[in-house]
Design a protein around this nucleic acid. Structure first.
Lengths: 221, 221
DNA sequence: TCTTTTCCGTTGGAAAAACAACAGACTTGT
DNA sequence: ACAAGTCTGTTGTTTTTCCAACGGAAAAGA
């Protein structure tokens, strides 16, 4: 367990907690290590989750199979990332997705009840932990709402405009750069790359914006 | 403040907390009441939020204006609903949306720092509160992820199939009813109603499902 | 009961996106 | 320096969605 302390220190969950405190907290939180082989399912649709997990090594897919058997990859989990945090609510129903290891993977399990039930004396950093988890989930919540606001636009053009508009706000400048390449941006917005590229150029020709590689500039009309 | 206790008792935030305890907690959490006139902005894009809010009376829109001035309504808040929970993270940046009262409204403000920093002696229900807020936000997170999984499907057909498939899972039966009418479902999935209606009938003709009003039955292939 | 309104399916034309395929610019690795 | 691979814009065709409009069925209201 000790070998994961340096990884955990860099996670959002344990941000601001010292090495020694992490070790004692691992104990307090009933931390368990589990390993998965490549291709093995960590969780299956229909199971109930009572833990918060952090991926220590490897790579996981969160995927979903519909009633007719069509597969769909929803998310990719990389080392240091937390998952399962949305399924710890009592009576929240069973897991709707599968979690599968696409590489040899190591997962840390934390007892959720122990996290939320504050043991005031034993763990001085417990309050910190509750805040961290709360902040992480809030952050995720916020970015989900934002993404949803792009995705709910009907056309590729509107999706682009709402996304770029938000980036300009976020970076507080009408000139900014994005960390996506074209294919990634298209995937993020769930549209076709070439159609999106085409639309970007139309927007440029109409004078609404300019771009060079990943540098964008929005223009007033 | 007393007049809102019965409302608060029914909110997710104060679920499981008795009347007397709510009153003392309101004090502990530095609760403030603010009223807004119809058309008045509660918050504007660019502001920083340090509170958690519950709408007591009236109705609010969470809306967004893009760089070129196009308006977009993201959400409608009704009495008893909580909002702002995603913006309380330190360094989370300014609010990206506007919050506007579309009716004469009353909003309760709670000091977020007070909620997360547990005062072990004074409030026996504090742990309960932290759990409640955590559960609420997790729940929201989960439904956002689900919705996003529908919305990220490219075609109306796929959006429908993934949504209906999930409902069947959730209600644990291939026959189930939904609480949306056609227009609401179309809005939820961000597609055109008539096109969606058309697609539903195609799916029925292809033998994948059946429906009568809001009752759906999925068929194996 | 009769009227009005809402809801839902249907259709045809217009608009947009998806798709496939390709070429040039740029990167990377050897 | 060269080859292989990636990234991006472009074009033409096919497919899908959007939009507007309509009619019938069901529900709500007078």
């Amino acid at each position: 367990m000790k070998k994961y302390v340096s990884l955990l220190k860099r996670t959002k969950l344990f941000s601001g907690v010292g090495d020694d405190d992490i070790l004692s907290m691992l104990n307090c939180l009933n931390a368990i290590v589990r390993e998965y082989n490549k291709g093995e399912y960590a969780f299956r649709q229909g199971e109930y989750i009572r833990n918060l997990m952090i991926l220590a090594e490897g790579r996981l897919y969160i995927q979903k199979e519909d009633y007719w058997g069509n597969l769909n990859i929803l998310n990719e989990i990389r080392p240091g990332e937390m998952f399962g945090e949305a399924y710890i609510v009592p009576n929240s129903g069973p897991l709707m997705n599968d979690v599968i290891a696409i590489e040899e993977s190591v997962v840390l399990f934390f007892d959720m009840e122990r996290i939320l039930t504050v043991c005031s004396s034993a763990c001085p950093f417990h309050t910190r932990l509750v805040k961290n988890i709360f902040y992480t989930i809030s952050d995720k919540n916020k970015s989900l709402v934002q993404k949803l606001s792009y995705m709910s636009q009907r056309s590729t053009r509107e999706k682009l405009l709402s996304y770029l508009s938000d980036e300009a706000k976020r970076q507080n400048s009408s000139s900014f750069s994005i960390h996506f390449n074209r294919q990634q941006l298209a995937d993020f917005l769930s549209v076709d790359r070439s159609a999106m590229s085409n639309e970007l150029c139309k927007l440029r020709d109409e004078g609404m914006l300019d771009f060079h590689k990943n540098e964008f500039t929005l223009h007033e009309l």
